[in-house]
Every structure is written in structure tokens, then in C-alpha cells.
Design a protein around this nucleic acid. Structure first.
Length: 584
RNA sequence: CGGGGUGUAGCGCAGCCUGGUUAGCGCGCGUGCCUUGGGAGCACGAGGUCGCCGGUUCAAAUCCGGCCACCCCGACCA
């Protein structure tokens, strides 16, 4: 395509309302424009990239046995009431009424619709398994949309749903999707990692998130430096080192700590390390308050506590609750003498001796406390978040942290929706049974943004060829000369005729402008046609990623571009992929 | 929703505190000349309800009140 005819409004300066790199660069490269908060238009360049990702997704989903459908975006409230989510989903669900005053919503996801579709037309185990997917616009009325396409309210998502007759079948479907996802992100040219994620009440390792690795990512990927264990921070398990034999009771000396209510204050005041303190946190759940003991230098993990207690709501207790439970003010809670409240403790507490705890009284702490003898704990468990350097739960390695952006999620749903919505089939024995479901999402528009977060430099975007809006840009430069223009045209046509997405910068601009725009747009290869080299019958081929320039024959451009884009690799920084599948 | 901030030409900003000629600057845009290997130069030009509504004042971009929009920090998630 010819650049002079395309709407590619590049900008020299960063727009003021863009904060993250992908947002800035997509605006500057003329890929997107904002309509309103969290809602964007895709211009030709942005849409081309998006479609490349979509196409890869399609090919891999189809290859994995999934079938593409297209489900309605506007959905009736009845369906959501049936699944029970109408009252659960909250304000993120965009609700409205039609002219007949019927309640509707704009689909943020499609479990209800797809389950309804399948229950109407699938009757027998002979028709299963079934895997349906679609690529379409979703709307989630996020509290705070931000970071451009990274967290928009309206976004493009691939969502897929599998239906199986048996648990084993469902696991097989899950595994097929896991593998398809790995292929998709590999083909996109991204460094990523599949990590174990929390699967809530279903349990097991039947939830994986696919994370594009990027320093600017919001999520923390925890991975082992030795084996291929990887999980997100919420999920990452902790292996506690062997516990020392129980010490005898401590002296339990009460000390005055005026106004010292934080870990930092107390440790500094008493001259001890944070790891020698025990935090006593009073939490409120829908089933009443609990006390949780965490070592001073550790962080509480709410997900783990929710799972252990099997509750859905958890928050730090307010002042009054703390006083009711401990008898003392906020900031001085301790485990000694706690009654009428369940006491949970992280495994690390077991290994402590001579610890410092709160005195459940204003300005009082207790030192020289030994957990195994000096206070009561109802349950010990893994209740904290992993830290770098912790032991790997699978091997002798250590855990390290990387930043990531979640672009995909595979999840085993079980019979949650099929049971609620009565999506059943007849098995071989003629018995009615709910289908076993799985759901699989890819944030297509977010994948484009994540690719940019991962691959950019000072000059702009560095697109992997597989998802670049154009593979190559042909740039005639220098004073107007027929030979230069003709050669550029020739090369451009040859590329295009051989199925290479080529862009011809036929604008009447100075070379510097063309080079800057080409870099900004992140087009992987640039063929520069100028008099400097044309006199020797050569043109320049520049690699956007390495910045390496090579002189090649005009006739060799096609072959060179083909082989280079096929062999393109992301710059090595971490292991490209990995993660563990659920065991067979 | 709580906390912080911004709204002046397509984009980036100054002016506002201390009210007062015709509201400026850079980029971009148009025309012409010139230039052509990393966002050139000169000249001329177009482009503004100063977010909206109201108030104070002889006079409001500027002071006051209300509203709206957007951005950033917290609870969500592809």
C-alpha cells in the first residue's frame, strides 16, 4: 500500500494523556485514537496489526479442533439471572433497557450465551466434545480504564468454550487449548510464560495465565531458576524449610513501645529485624473475623486465605472489630491470649523463636515469644505471598520474579454454568448429566499493546514480523530521480505480488522524516532506495530490531525479506516460554 | 467511589497568582521559493465559543460558585 494514501497520522510529541509506552507509541504511530475513556478507534495501521493477531489465533484454534462462531453482543438479563451472575457481576456489567423496557446487557463475556446455545441443540454424548470460539468486541465498564489498550473498557477478545462429557475429556480439551495458546504466542514472536493461576473453588492446576514478559507489566510472574515451575504471585506456592525442634517457652517480657504500631517502627525501636516480628492481622470475612499471623517481613496473601477458609469476602477489619477481638487498639494486636476468634498462622511462624508480638494493649509489645509454646494457633498453612529467593515448591531451586502482562487465560469451569443453566446430555447409559466446561480467553487488542511494551526502543515500536502492520517498508530517498522512484516501485510491486505486506513511502518528504516514521511504526524491515547505493545496483536493507544495515542487490530483496522475517527472534532476555501442564 | 491533577488552535505548552490593547510560542497545516541519507531553511497565510453554565466587576482566559470531561494513585481483569 502507498503511504501517501493511508491515514497514518504520526505525531512528533507524546500526547499528554498517555502514560505507558504502548499507549504513547500507538498514538504517535497513528495506530489508534481515543474516542472517550477506555474506548479507542483503530486506524489502518492499528487494525492491520490486530488482524494479524486474530488470524494467528484463528489458525491455531481451528487446528486445535475449535470452531469459530459469532455470538450476540447484546444479551438478555434473563440468561444472566439464570446463571446467577446478574446480581454478582456488579457495575462492570453494562446494563440498559430496550424500548420495551426489557433488561439487557452488553456482553463482557459469553458463558451464558454459549451455554444456552449448546443446551438447546446438543443432546447426546455422541456430539461431544465441542469447542466453540469467537473473536469480537467485549465491553467491561472498568472502574478505572487506563494505559490505552492495556486496560480499555471496550476491547477485542477471543473467547472460547469447551463442552465435554467426562472429566478426562475436559482435561484433554484444556490441554489442547494450553498448547494452542503456547503456539499462538510463539507465532506472534513474543517472549511469554504460561503460569499457574488461582483456580478458586475448582482447585488443582486447572487455571493458567499466559503472560507476555515486559518490564512494564503489572503482574508478577514467579518462576523457578532451576525447573520450569511458574506461577503468578497470588498462586505461587511456598515450600517451607524444615522446622527447628520446638524451643521451650520464652520469657514473654512485656515492653513499652510508645506509639510504635508499624513493623518498621517497632523493629527500629527495639533494634530487631522485621523477620523477628509477628504481624497479627485481624480480617473480616462473611463468616466473621479471623486472626492471621504473618512474619514481619512477609506479605499476607488474601487468595490463599480465602481458599483455606473457603470464603469469598475478605478485608482488613476496622478499628472496632479489632478492639472487640483483641481487647487492644489497632497496631498492637498479638496472638497471646486470643479467644473467640480463629487463629491462622503462616508456616513460617513455626520456625520462629524469640519473636516480638503485639501486647493487645496500647503501647505494649511482648518480646521473647516462642510460637510453638507461648500461644495457640488453630491452623498453620501457606498464607503468605512468595518472595524472591524463596524455595521452589517443586525442586531445590529458588524463585525469582519477572514482570508480565496477562494476555491469555485458560480455565476449567467444570459444571458451574451447565448445572445452573441445565446444559445436560444423555450419556451412554441414558443418564442425564451436566456438561463439563472450560473457558479460554485471549485479549487480542491487549496482545498488540503487550507486544509493544515488550518490543520497543527510543525510536519507537519494534514489531515482530508476524504481527507487524507491514512486514517491510520501501523508502525512496534523495532528490527526485526517476531511477530511484522506478526501482522503489519495482521492489514494492514484487514484494506485494509475492504476498509480502509491503508499504511504499511515496510521500514527498525528506529522508529524515521517512526514516523517523518508519522506525516509529516499527516496521521490521526497511528497504532504502537512494542514489548512494543504486549506482552500484544495490539497495539497503535495514533491520529495525538490530539496526544492522546490509547492501543487497535489487533482485535479492524479496528472498532476503522472506527469510529474515521467517527467522526473526525476539531479543533474548529470558527463557522464551515454558510453564507446566497439569500432569497426565 | 475516595485521594491528587489537568482542561487555552490538530498536537505539545506559556499566559491566570497580581483582571485592562488585537490571547501568545513551538510543532503540524496551506501557498511560494529553496533544500533532499536521520523529524531542513526563508517568506506569507489559515486556524481560538480560552471545557460548559452562572456570579462578581466599568472590564474575566485570569477572581468566585456549580457542573462536565480527561489523566494519575487505590479495589478489577483479557
Amino acid at each position: 500500500m502507498r503511504m501517501s494514501k493511508l491515514l497514518i497520522p504520526t505525531l512528533k510529541e507524546d500526547p499528554s494523556d498517555a502514560e505507558v509506552i504502548s499507549h504513547k507509541l500507538m498514538l504517535r504511530a497513528g495506530m489508534i485514537r481515543k474516542l472517550t475513556s477506555g474506548i479507542y478507534s483503530y486506524l489502518p495501521l492499528g487494525y492491520r496489526s490486530l488482524r494479524k493477531v486474530e488470524q494467528i489465533v484463528r489458525e491455531e484454534m481451528d487446528a486445535a479442533g475449535a470452531q469459530e462462531v459469532f455470538l450476540p453482543a447484546v444479551q438478555p438479563a434473563e440468561l444472566w439471572k439464570e446463571s446467577g451472575r446478574w446480581n454478582v457481576y456488579g457495575p462492570e456489567l453494562l446494563r440498559f433497557k430496550d424500548r420495551h423496557n426489557r433488561e439487557c446487557c452488553f456482553g463482557p463475556t459469553h458463558e451464558e450465551v454459549v451455554t444456552d446455545l449448546v443446551r438447546r441443540d446438543v443432546r447426546s454424548y455422541k456430539e461431544l466434545p465441542l469447542n466453540l470460539y469467537q473473536i469480537q468486541t467485549k465491553f467491561r465498564d472498568e472502574i478505572r480504564p487506563r494505559f490505552g489498550l492495556m486496560r480499555g473498557r471496550e476491547f477485542i477478545m477471543k473467547d472460547g468454550y469447551s463442552f465435554d462429557a467426562t472429566e478426562e475429556g475436559a482435561e484433554k480439551s484444556y490441554r489442547a487449548m494450553w498448547e494452542a495458546y503456547s503456539r499462538i504466542f510463539s507465532r506472534c514472536g513474543l517472549r511469554f510464560r504460561a503460569v499457574e493461576a488461582d483456580s478458586g473453588p475448582i482447585g488443582g492446576s486447572f487455571s493458567h495465565e499466559f503472560m507476555v514478559l515486559a518490564d512494564t507489566g503489572e503482574d508478577t510472574v514467579v518462576s523457578c531458576d532451576t525447573c520450569d515451575y511458574a506461577a503468578n504471585l497470588e498462586k505461587a506456592e511456598i515450600r517451607q524449610p524444615a522446622v527447628a525442634p520446638p524451643a521451650g517457652p520464652g520469657s514473654k517480657k512485656r515492653v513499652t513501645t510508645p506509639g510504635m504500631s508499624t513493623i518498621e517502627q517497632v523493629s527500629e525501636f527495639l533494634g530487631v529485624k522485621a523477620r523477628d516480628l509477628i504481624k497479627t492481622l485481624i480480617l473480616r470475612t462473611e463468616r466473621g473475623p479471623v486472626a492471621v499471623l504473618i512474619r514481619g517481613d512477609h506479605d499476607l496473601n488474601e487468595i490463599k486465605i480465602k481458599n483455606m477458609l473457603n470464603v469469598t469476602e475478605i478485608e482488613l477489619a476496622d478499628q472496632r472489630t479489632i478492639e472487640d477481638v483483641t481487647g487492644g487498639p489497632t497496631g498492637f494486636s498479638g496472638p497471646i491470649g486470643l479467644k473467640n476468634v480463629q487463629v491462622l498462622a503462616d508456616n513460617a511462624i513455626l520456625g520462629m523463636t524469640s519473636a516480638v508480638v503485639g501486647g493487645n494493649e496500647q503501647d505494649v509489645h511482648v518480646v521473647d515469644v516462642n510460637p510453638q509454646t507461648d500461644f495457640h494457633v488453630d491452623v498453620y498453612g501457606d498464607l503468605r505471598s512468595a518472595q524472591e529467593g524463596d524455595l521452589c515448591p517443586r525442586c531445590q531451586g529458588r524463585l525469582s520474579f519477572t514482570k508480565g502482562i496477562e494476555v491469555g487465560h485458560v480455565f476449567k469451569l467444570g459444571d458451574k454454568y451447565s448445572r445452573a443453566m441445565n446444559a445436560t446430555f444423555l450419556d451412554a447409559q441414558g443418564e442425564d448429566r451436566p456438561m463439563i466446561m472450560g473457558c479460554y480467553g485471549i485479549g487480542v487488542s491487549r496482545t498488540v499493546a503487550a507486544a509493544i511494551e515488550q518490543n520497543h526502543d527510543q525510536d519507537g515500536i519494534i514489531f515482530p514480523p508476524a504481527i507487524a502492520p507491514f512486514t517491510v517498508i520501501v523508502t525512496p530517498v534523495g532528490a527526485k530521480a526517476q531511477e530511484i522512484e522506478d526501482t522503489a516501485e519495482l521492489i514494492y510491486r514484487e514484494l506485494w505480488e509475492h504476498g509480502i505486506d509491503a508499504l511504499l513511502d511515496d510521500r514527498d518528504e525528506r529522508p529524515g522524516v521517512k526514516f523517523k516514521d518508519a522506525d516509529l511504526m516499527g516496521i521490521p524491515f526497511r528497504v532504502t532506495v537512494g542514489k548512494k547505493t543504486l549506482s552500484q545496483g544495490k539497495v539497503e536493507l535495514r533491520d529495525r530490531q538490530t539496526k544492522a544495515v546490509e547492501l543487497i542487490d535489487v533482485a535479492g530483496v524479496l528472498q532476503e525479506v522472506k527469510s529474515r522475517s521467517a527467522g526473526w527472534q525476539p531479543l533474548p532476555r529470558n527463557r522464551t516460554c515454558g510453564g507446566t501442564l497439569p500432569r497426565e
